[in-house]
Each structure stands twice: as structure tokens, then as C-alpha cells.
Write a protein that binds this DNA or RNA. Sequence first.
DNA 1: TTCTTATGCTACGCTACGGTAGCGTACTGT
DNA 2: ACAGTACGCTACCGTAGCGTAGCATAAGAA
Lengths: 188, 188
Amino acid sequence: MSGPTQITDKRVERSKAKVLAETYRQLVQSGIAGVSIDEISRISGISKTTIYRHWPSRSALLIDACSRLGGAPVAPDTGGLRSDARALLSHLAHQLRTANWSSVYPSIIDAAERDAEICAMQAALHKAFMAPFEAVIERAKAKGEIPRDRVTSDIVALLAGPFFFRRWFAKEEMDDHFIDAVIDAAIR
Amino acid sequence: MSGPTQITDKRVERSKAKVLAETYRQLVQSGIAGVSIDEISRISGISKTTIYRHWPSRSALLIDACSRLGGAPVAPDTGGLRSDARALLSHLAHQLRTANWSSVYPSIIDAAERDAEICAMQAALHKAFMAPFEAVIERAKAKGEIPRDRVTSDIVALLAGPFFFRRWFAKEEMDDHFIDAVIDAAIR
DNA sequence: TTCTTATGCTACGCTACGGTAGCGTACTGT
DNA sequence: ACAGTACGCTACCGTAGCGTAGCATAAGAA
């Protein structure tokens, strides 16, 4: 639409970057509730007044920072549905174990329960996150590896659901055996 | 161990009950982070000093209140694994849509990420919650409806995971068609 | 160089919260 | 009836947080 919204002034870029970096740090360490403007200012070295010059409120900063959590999604193409799924789930399990966002996400989910803006942000985040899953499944449908009448979002839930469940609710391991069990169940 | 810890004084019982009731209300409405001792006192009519006479800290009150969230679990026994599973999942879907705890749970999950005591409480809550699932699966194994070498906790994750996923992450419907799809996948 | 603009600084105001102390009163169990 | 005790009330303390105002200064753009 509007392109890169030309920011010419280096000072603005530097300030924003520093603030976002420190916001991200606090987000990962303490969740949404633990993010404090005063502390961002203190640690990043950017004055609080400057922060409020770039974001109208704490909420706006939080939403901006959270929106940048998702990395560029990649849909594997290994030649077959099962191996694609294994790649997806193996990557998901690894992310859930190690990635920074996996400790932030529950606080986003919680906040989304009561805040419309955060809810919208979470929806966008989730969509981007699940895109590779949908891509792989659609491709398999096109190739006839899955019957067309199976609902894509059902399969996504069958594949990803058990992992989210284990990471945050059951708190159990997600090893190769589990990955195979999930694939066997979801793709029969 | 110690039995019902005999509380004779009606005043204590009344105060505690009122405080817990209001704590529960705030918990459901605003999550863990939204619970305030001042407001509990204000609305319940129980003095703040009295609250601190019964609970040493805000955390203790929160953990006490959260521990009471789970209702008495019931494992269905309809005669067959598939219909048992359908009963479990149908009940789960309904709970996730309507029960009060379903709006609180994300905040517990979030807090558990950073607080050891809340983490332990969540573990107990989760265990009680999943007990009926395990019971049904174990019974099916005993009856030979499922091969014994299938891991029980894997099946629990396959059954319940997709529902948790839909309720809080994907935010999609959980209708009868979905229930059947999950059962078909988890119990083959 | 000169003009513009972003920034830093200090000092606020306001609200909310957790937790405590002291004292008088009302209730409950015996 | 009486003694013990749970209770309410008021007034605190200290901390933390969001958000703003005014003014001087430094850095970038032309």
C-alpha cells in the first residue's frame, strides 16, 4: 500500500530499535504483564518521554512488539506428506522447547481473553504460524495424498494441538516417538 | 492425614467463604493478574486485615482459590471406548465453551511459566482434570479395545490437545463433526 | 553553517497495590 | 454470664506504575 513509509531520521530509527529490543527482552523474561515503560526507559537508555513520542500508550508498544514475534514461516517440501509433516512437527517441538516466544505466548493468550486488540494481534500471529501447516496439507490434497473431503483445519488441529497441549498444559516431552504417534493419528 | 482440621468458629467459616467467593469472581472476570486484595475486601465486605489473618499473602490466597477450580471428575462408562471418548470430548468441548475456569486457565498457564508454586498447583489441577481420560483409556486397554503398547499419555494428548488448541489458540468451533474427527484419529 | 527536529532531563500528578499496626467492638463456644 | 477471639475500622508506609509538562541540548538534514 504505502511502501516503506520513508523514515529518514536515523535518530528515530535508533530509538525505536532500542526500545523494541528492550521490550522484547522483558516480554520474554516476564510476559506481557511484566513489561514496564519505566524499566524499558531505564535499561534501554531511551527517555520515557521519547518512548511516548513514538507510541501513544503502553498497549500500543506491546502490540507492536508482540507482532514482531513470529519469524518468517517456511513450508517444507520434502516430496511426501508424511515427511513434510515430520519436518513441521519436529521444528515445532524444537521451537516450543527453545524459542523465546514460547514463554511469551501464554501471556498473549491470556491477555487476548480480555483485550480485543491483543485478541486481533494473536489471531494474526496464529495465522502466520499455522500457514506452513495449511500449505503442506493443501499440497497433499492436490497430490491426492489426502482425501479432499477432510477439513484442513481439522488436520491442523490434530497435528499441532497435541504439541501445544504438551508444552503448556501437560508439560511432557515431545520426542520422535511422540511425533510419529501424532502423524500416524492425523494422517491415516 | 489430619482430617477435616476442625474449624468450629462460624465467623471464620463465613469470612473465608466470602473472600474465596469474591476471589473466584475476580479470577473468572480478570484472571490471576486482575485479582486485588483491596477490591476483594471492598466488595466482599471482609476487612483487609481479616483477609491477611487467614492467608499469609496474596499468592497464598490465589493458590487456594485456584485449587478449588476443578470440579469432581467423572469417568463415563458407557460400555465402549468410542462412546466413552465421545462423552468425554463432548463434555470437554462444552466446558471449554461455557465453564468459568476456561477463562481463568490461560492466566494460570502464564503464571506457571514463571512461578514455581503456581506451576505445582497447575500440575495438580491438570492431573485431576485428565484423570477421567486416563481411566477410560486404561479400561479400554484392559478390555483389549486398544493395544497395550500404545502409550496412554499419547492418547490423552491426541484426544484433548486438539480441543485446547481450538479453544485458546485457533479459536475455532468444536462441533460434533470435530469430535468424531478427533476420535477417528486418536483411536484407530 | 543554519535550521529543524528528535532527544534527554527533572519534576511532577495520580492511581493502585501489598502489607502492617493499634484499638475498640461484636460475636461465639463453653 | 463470661472469657476468648475473630472482626472491622482507620490510618498508615513504601513501592510501582502510567502518562505529562517545560525546557535545554545535541544531532541530523539542507
